[in-house]
């Protein structure tokens, strides 16, 4: 639902990087979206397309990587993926787990001319 604000922020970052590197054409954008963020990738692609349409960065390819929700148990130090949003260590049952990845919302790289 808030993919429009996310797309707007993405475009600000892309334009800023293009300015700094004197780039004129945007070929593609690579973003990381954590599984535990509340972003719907299709909605983000749609918003990005709409917001760049008829601008000087129109037509760029948006590549979205979904990053799994990974945690590390504070007690036994083992790492594991969480798929059911139950933040329990599957090895020792520990309830204190730190999130290592899965909440990303970042522009990783861009391809420009």
């Amino acid at each position: 639902m808030h993919e429009m604000s996310i797309a707007r922020n993405m475009i600000d970052i892309i334009k800023d990087e293009m300015r700094r590197h004197n780039a004129r054409v945007l070929r593609s954008v690579h973003v990381n979206i954590g599984r535990f963020s509340s972003i719907v990738p299709e909605a983000l692609s749609f918003c990005f397309e709409i917001m760049t349409k008829d601008t000087d960065i129109a037509g760029a390819r948006l590549v979205i990587d979904i990053i799994p929700l990974m945690c590390r148990c504070v007690s036994c130090d083992k790492e594991f993926e969480i798929t059911d949003y139950s933040f329990l260590c599957p090895f020792c049952g520990g309830m204190k787990v730190d999130t290592i990845s899965g909440q990303e919302l970042s522009v990783v790289d861009i391809e420009v001319d």
Partner: peptide, 11 residues
């Protein structure tokens, strides 16, 4: 040309 960005979208 590829530019490495690695910036938080909500920065």
């Amino acid at each position: 040309m590829k530019i490495t960005v690695v910036r938080d979208i909500l920065e």
